[in-house]
């Protein structure tokens, strides 16, 4: 007999599970902000809306529980009076569940951490229509296998996320964007520890400085010694997003003109470009292992058919 709160105690989750059911292709649609990712969904799949609403803000624990359909912007709005937020990136209309299903981190990953590391517990519906608990409610937990990490970035192909507990972080005392021209972005990374984001388009560098006032001021003095500095907004990001090793980004300015305009996340390795680039294929052993995981958790392939995660 379990001693912790069962997801069955939330009738909204129970309704969601019965709507998912146990047969037939199904896809959960959040904000639809990245709907074509992984090749788009099979039109035969029945679309289900995720449950919405913030379940509880536990500011003293630095955690928050929200249902999957909650807007990330709404979540952060509710956390702001407590001086907290999550690592999840915000884009207009994006939901908490959708953001986890996609798994991407935001442009301030350098300072705010990765999306995948912020997930403590997930309630999801299994392929058999059962409500499952993965992880646990506390900020630290190694009880059982880490199903939470597996769900992040799985594009809804392994389970239908219903509700999640996320770790929150304090909002820094100061957060300010500047633009510097003609500096080596690697030098910014080395010298300015308050950099929560360093974006570089080959000419200009945008820096989000975040932290205590005295430290940000000290970093801004260092930045102004490197090049001319002025307050700015972050640049618009080109539409295609791909993943590289952080050091590969410095070669972008010499790269094939085919990528078009680019904005690189220095120190992280994500780069945003105008035009797509062929991603490197995953190793064959990994493809087979991923296939086995998909088959084990969704034996009939009913979750988000048509959508391909990685190489499978």
């Amino acid at each position: 007999m379990g001693l912790i709160r069962s997801p069955e105690s939330d009738p909204i989750l129970v309704d969601f599970a019965s709507e998912i059911g146990s047969v037939g292709p199904v896809v959960v649609r959040g904000g639809g902000t990245h709907w074509d990712l992984g090749g788009g969904s099979d039109p035969a799949a029945r679309e289900v809306r995720p449950p919405e609403g913030i379940v509880g803000i536990r500011a003293e624990e630095m955690t928050v529980e929200a249902r999957a359909g909650t807007l990330v912007s709404e979540l952060h709005e509710a956390l702001r009076p407590f001086g907290q937020r999550t690592s999840l990136p915000e884009s207009p209309g994006s939901t908490v569940g959708g953001t986890l299903a996609v798994g991407w981190s935001g442009i301030a990953r350098l300072g705010r951490g990765q999306t995948r590391d912020s997930v403590l517990q997930v309630h999801y519906v299994s392929a058999e229509g059962r409500l499952i608990t993965a992880g646990g409610p506390t900020v630290k937990n190694v009880s059982g296998f880490d199903m939470c990490r597996l769900l992040v970035g799985s594009l809804g192909t392994l389970g239908c996320m219903a509700d999640m507990i996320l770790r929150t972080r304090p909002i820094p005392e100061v957060e300010v964007w500047h633009r510097v021209v003609d500096v080596d972005p690697a030098e910014v990374l080395r010298r300015c520890r308050t950099s929560a984001s360093i974006l570089w388009d080959g000419r200009s560098t945008w820096v989000l400085s975040a932290g205590y006032r005295a430290d940000v001021d000290s970093d801004l003095r260092a930045l102004s010694e490197l090049g001319s500095l002025r307050p700015d907004h972050p640049p618009d990001l080109p539409p295609i997003r791909w993943s590289r090793r952080p050091s590969d980004l410095f070669d972008m300015s010499r790269a094939d003109a085919a990528v078009g305009r680019f904005v690189a996340e220095i120190g992280v390795g994500v780069v945003h470009t105008e035009n797509p680039v062929e991603p490197s294929p995953p190793s064959p052993g990994t493809v087979a292992l991923q296939r086995r995981i998909k088959d084990a958790l969704d034996p009939t392939g009913r979750f988000n058919p048509g959508r391909r995660v990685g190489g499978i």
């Binding site: 199903m147 991603p279 052993g285 990994t286 991923q290 995981i293 990685g310």
Partner: peptide, 19 residues
Amino acid sequence: VVMLGGLDAEPAGYDLRGA
């Protein structure tokens, strides 16, 4: 022998590393 995860920012596929 399989390689789980990767050195790039966001390796493709399920997070086998995390699992």
